[in-house]
Each structure stands twice: as structure tokens, then as C-alpha cells.
């Protein structure tokens, strides 16, 4: 095996080790998933009564309510995921390992993404039940995946910064929400398009922008993560 493939293999192994560790720890504690789930359910429940809309109007606000729910629940997940690493010095333990530090970043991104997608998939039937809307649309699932990737990539980078501060729980949403506005708007456009059964040509620009934003934010995070976590 030559050295580039060795490096690639150790990178992949490190990412896999971090994802597996996060899943095993969450399986034991169930802290992160349960708090995200309960919070998402509460947001959907509150919107249901607060908006008190006609069935025809409800369908129109679906994308907005869904993404607000996912973003709020996701913030809890991002904060908790990094807090677990910081509280007992485990982030230092990861940074001390002789692996490319972006492997740590991608490991955390993948595990947080798994938790977020799980919450989203579980929330869809609940939303359908509360709002009497059919959400089983492959296009919407694709947008949820792409939007969540962008959100978690940016969120993981910023939470690794915020976790170093005393005000981490408050700081993350303050720095995260303005940056994810382009991702959120594209995801909303594309979600609305699929939910209203528009022609694919009309949805394509929003979908394309979402993919482009995912690529750009991933590349930027890849480049700066090492500097963000080092003092």
C-alpha cells in the first residue's frame, strides 16, 4: 500500500471510529435524540395551535414550519454533540490523536447528521397527523437531506468555536442563524416546489443552489477547522 492510500485509509478509519463512538454513546444515554425529538414535537405542536389555519393554508406553510422545527431541534443537537466532547476534555483527546483533524470534523458532521435526519424522518408523520398534510414526497426527502448537510456542516464548525466559550449555548444560534440563511432559503424554495408539485425545471435553481452551498460550506469548513480548534 502506498502512502496516499495509507493516509486515506487512516482518515476513513478515524471518521468511522468517531461516528461509531458517537452512536454507541448516544445508544447508552439517549440524551441527544430524546431532547431533539421532544423539542421538535413541541415546536410542531405550538405552531399547530398558534397559527390555527384553514386546511388549504396549512399546506402552504408546511415547508416553513418544518424547516424552523428542524433548525431549532438541530441547534440542540449541535450544542450537545460538541458539549459532550468539551465537558470532560474529550475534544483534546481527539485533537491529540495523530490523525488529520478534518477527520474529527467529518466524524462529528456525520454523526450529528444521522441524529438530525432521524429526528426529521420521525417528525414527518407527526406533522402529517397534526396538519393533515401528506409529506411522503421523495423530492422533499432529498431537500431535507441536502439542507441538513449544509446546516450540520456549518453548525459543526461554529459549535466547535462556540464550545470554547462560556456562553456556548447562547452563542451558537446567534452566530449560526445568520450564516445559514442562504441554505435555509434555498431549502424552503425547493421544499415548497416539491410540496406544491411544481415542474422540476422550476425547482432546479433552488436545488442547484442548495447543492452549491453544501459544497462551498463543506470546502470552507475543511480548510478552517484546524485553525478553529487550535489555540
Amino acid at each position: 500500500m502506498n502512502s496516499p492510500s495509507l493516509a486515506r485509509s487512516s482518515f476513513v478509519k478515524a471518521v468511522a471510529a468517531i461516528v461509531q463512538k458517537d452512536l454507541a454513546a448516544e445508544y447508552r444515554s439517549r440524551e441527544l435524540l430524546s431532547s431533539m425529538m421532544v423539542f421538535a414535537l413541541l415546536v410542531i405542536f405550538i405552531f399547530n395551535y398558534a397559527l390555527n389555519l384553514e386546511p388549504s393554508v396549512r399546506a402552504k406553510v408546511t415547508a416553513g414550519v418544518l424547516w424552523v422545527t428542524f433548525v431549532f431541534a438541530g441547534t440542540i443537537g449541535l450544542n450537545r454533540s460538541m458539549a459532550v466532547e468539551k465537558d470532560r476534555g474529550c475534544l483534546d483527546g481527539l485533537l491529540l490523536a495523530p490523525v488529520d483533524r478534518t477527520a474529527i470534523f467529518f466524524g462529528k458532521v456525520i454523526s450529528t447528521l444521522i441524529f438530525m435526519l432521524l429526528v426529521e424522518v420521525i417528525m414527518l408523520p407527526f406533522y402529517g397527523l397534526f396538519y393533515n398534510v401528506n409529506l411522503f414526497n421523495p423530492g422533499l426527502l432529498l431537500v431535507m437531506l441536502l439542507g441538513s448537510i449544509g446546516y450540520v456542516v456549518v453548525g459543526t464548525l461554529l459549535s466547535s468555536m462556540a464550545v470554547q466559550t462560556r456562553t456556548r449555548d447562547i452563542l451558537l444560534p446567534i452566530i449560526l442563524f445568520p450564516i445559514i440563511i442562504p441554505i435555509l432559503l434555498s431549502a424552503l424554495d425547493a421544499s415548497n416546489g416539491f410540496l406544491n408539485h411544481l415542474e422540476f425545471d422550476l425547482i432546479q435553481p433552488a436545488l442547484g443552489l442548495l447543492v452549491a452551498l453544501d459544497v462551498i460550506f463543506t470546502a470552507v469548513s475543511f480548510m478552517v477547522f484546524d485553525y478553529v480548534v487550535e489555540e
Binding site: 463512538k21 454507541a24 454513546a25 447508552r28 459532550v84 470532560r88 476534555g89 474529550c90 483534546d92 491529540l96
Partner: peptide
């Protein structure tokens, strides 16, 4: 002085 260990493992 921090253990650098995961409590749930």
C-alpha cells in the same frame, strides 16, 4: 486533570 474519557462508554 481532565480524564479525556467518554462517560457513556
Amino acid at each position: 486533570h481532565m480524564p479525556l474519557l467518554y462517560a457513556d462508554l
